[in-house]
Amino acid sequence: MKTLIDTEFTVFPVSEKTNIILPFTVSEEATELVIDYSYSPKTLADNEKAERLIRENLLRDAGDSIGEYTDSGKFMPLKNLITLSLDSPSGYRGAAHRQDSEQHHVIRRNFASVGFLKGEIEKGQWQLVLNVHAVVTDEVKCKVRVHAGGVLK
């Protein structure tokens, strides 16, 4: 196994609706990429803040029907959502668009974890992209590790 990325960082609400790009280079023959990813917290525990964010959402998106949304509780708990997508030197290799905040993925020539596209672990520049869909807490701690497996030397 060769470590390609091993990093921890904090994402703040200002990064909502942006992409965080983590480039890495595969320089040796490899048979698989292994991605381990987690972020925390998943949900917003502060109910007062949740009420405020829901109110802001309704003011923006509900328009003249805002009065119909009387039960903000059904939208709670609000969740952070930071998904992963992947690019190889030859193009897009899929995404894991789901709520899980702990994920493990494997990509090989003839197999890939759901959401990703199987295929050669090409030499060259790849990128793992964190798609920051929602940051509802004051900060989110992210942990990303990418390994290349089956490296011959």
Partner: peptide
């Protein structure tokens, strides 16, 4: 087009 958006249904609006 008129689903509630972020953070209720992210990007849904």
């Amino acid at each position: 087009p008129f689903q509630l958006g972020t953070p209720i249904c992210t990007g849904g609006h």
